[in-house]
């Protein structure tokens, strides 16, 4: 057997492409339409009364439909955060930057967002922040209608106020 014949095939390429028509769902559609209107819409669980933002249409704890819609403001509290120092191809932002869990006022589930307009060393748990929206003409049914969150001139929220939401 010649050398070429005995050489193992190390890999093969089999291109694959699948296309999908995604269904956002009833609750997510309400949320995304709200984003296009510059509003943050959540849903309250009729059993445990927790407010989900963004809503998924169900309460993951109780397993019931969350059909009570509530609007929450764009202000909230950082419950936890991290400083990202690794560049990412999917983000057009240079490290270091802060990704934080933000508990919006009136919501019970924190969500993930970018913190800007302050040095990363200043970010802390309990810090009060507000949403910075894109210009009105650029609003759309997408999370990207909120560009990022920035600090507001308020005293830090006490740990007791968000310790259940870490």
């Amino acid at each position: 057997m010649s050398e070429a014949e005995s050489e193992l095939v190390q890999s093969i390429t089999t291109p694959l492409r699948l296309e999908y028509q995604y269904t956002a769902g009833v609750a997510s559609t309400r949320f995304l339409r709200g984003m296009a209107d510059g509003k943050i819409l959540g849903q309250r669980c009729p059993q445990c009364e927790k407010v989900y933002v963004p809503p998924r249409g169900s309460c993951a704890r109780c397993g019931v439909a969350t059909d009570l819609e509530v609007q929450v403001p764009g202000t909230g509290t950082i419950t936890t955060f991290c400083v990202v120092r690794i560049p990412s191809d999917s983000l057009d932002i240079d490290p270091p930057f802060v990704a934080a869990h933000i508990l919006l006022d009136g919501a019970d589930i924190p969500f993930f967002a970018l913190i800007q307009e302050c040095h990363f060393d200043e970010v802390r748990m309990g810090m009060r922040v507000e949403a910075v929206w894109v210009d009105a003409e650029d609003l759309g049914p997408t999370f990207e209608s909120i560009r990022y969150f920035r600090p507001i001139d308020e005293p830090d929220a006490p740990f007791e106020s968000y310790k259940e939401h870490l």
Binding site: T23, G25, V26, A27, G57, G63
Partner: peptide, 16 residues
Amino acid sequence: REQRRNEVEMLMPVVQ
């Protein structure tokens, strides 16, 4: 084709 509901919203009433 279920146009409105996602999987969770389809499943929840059935499970309940």
